[in-house]
Nucleic acid binder design. Structure first.
Lengths: 209, 209
DNA sequence: TGTACATCAGTGAACGCGCGTTCACTGATGTAC
DNA sequence: TGTACATCAGTGAACGCGCGTTCACTGATGTAC
């Protein structure tokens, strides 16, 4: 069955899409090459016509999901009321829907830790996805004399990833939502964009309990 | 070789300590039962005299590291200058040393995502470790009318875990330190405890660059 | 106190299994003439 | 335009390997008498 070059490209894309979904859902180690190929409607033997190894597939998968966070969050920002872009993006990332569907969500929140322990290429790919998530917030961040927007963006992205990790550890959806809500307020406060921005808080001084 | 009950308890503890170290270093799936037993100076067959399965070992390992974050962070808080407990704890958690040594560091920052995809018992165990990390900060958090300390603690802990995840994805130590520094400022700002806000207290003992 | 027996943590070979990868083969389609 | 051949994505059996787990066995020590 000889196929056109376009057919091969389409098949490769289908494999990458299924890999991206399965890896985020079950983790890098618990998804086999046969699982991915089966999900793409193929048998496992054909895998090596497209990729040199499973490790290479993982690396290519991370490249394939490039642009996902921008594609998801930019419209949210642009459709938000004036001045509400940042809260809207944070609410979108830290939403119950995102928490419930890792398979379609942020790859850093799903696989960041595992990827850090894989090959250098995979770790670098994940680092780039993390920076890319941060860059998505860049245009919407406040300009401040004491902080660069780049550093605010990195810290914000990291906080969001950690919050999603925490929320997904809670099995009770209500408990998970409390975590998400707490983090939504927390990060907006850090950015000086808290919706209910109130009078100056009391300094942190509590003695050990 | 019949041994005393105390000998068995000690052996079990040694297995758990090595498991805690290896799992954090290499991940749950890439450490075999034989690896753990070997590190404890035993052969793999004896494993089942102590644990029913590898999954049970993982669960017990999460119980065994209980109290670790309190043991590490409480002294830091108590030895900090008045009013600087929180910045000191944050600096300690988000230190280059912690970033460089996952094997001896926070289990949530090392294994949180993987654990969420394991058995219900393991996920619950990890959720408890996450809540435990949050509780460590509880006594030192500011009392505020609009936020409970519990929610501040959860959001803070989640942000710290996310920041460590991001920092560990960067291979360049300087880039990693930028991420850590950005997150240190970010979370303290969210808590209304930013070091360079107001009557300039010196930043928490900055760890060696 | 001394002796016989029971215990069981630990050993190391063996098990079945699923994995990543390889390979001989297929056959529809592209290409050369 | 028609025909012969080459290509190569995809198939499915097979490979070696490491894994979690099992098991018959060991032998130092605890226990019973």
């Amino acid at each position: 069955m000889r196929y056109s070059a376009e057919h091969k490209r389409e098949t490769r894309q289908r494999i990458l899409q299924e890999a991206a979904r399965l890896f985020r859902e079950r983790g890098l180690d618990d998804v086999s090459v046969a699982d991915v190929m089966g999900a793409a409607g193929l048998t496992h033997g054909g895998f090596y016509a497209h990729f040199g190894s499973k490790e290479e597939l993982i690396g290519e998968t991370l490249r394939a999901v490039e642009g996902t966070s921008v594609a998801r969050l930019r419209p949210v920002a642009e459709q938000a009321p004036p001045g509400q872009a940042l809260p809207a993006m944070v609410a979108s990332y830290l939403s119950p829907e995102h928490r419930a569907r890792p398979a379609r969500g942020c790859v850093v929140a799903a696989l960041g830790q595992e990827a850090g322990r894989h090959s250098a290429a995979v770790r670098r790919g994940m680092a780039e996805r993390a920076r890319s998530l941060a860059r998505t917030f860049l245009p919407y961040l406040p300009v401040r004399p004491d902080r660069s927007r780049e550093e605010q963006a990195l810290a914000l992205a990291a906080s969001l990833v950690g919050a999603m990790l925490f929320a997904r550890l809670e099995e009770d959806p209500a408990a998970a939502e409390r975590v998400l809500a707490a983090s939504r307020r927390f990060v907006l406060e850090a950015l000086g964009a808290a919706p209910q921005a109130a009078p100056a808080p009391k300094p942190p001084d509590a003695p050990p309990a």
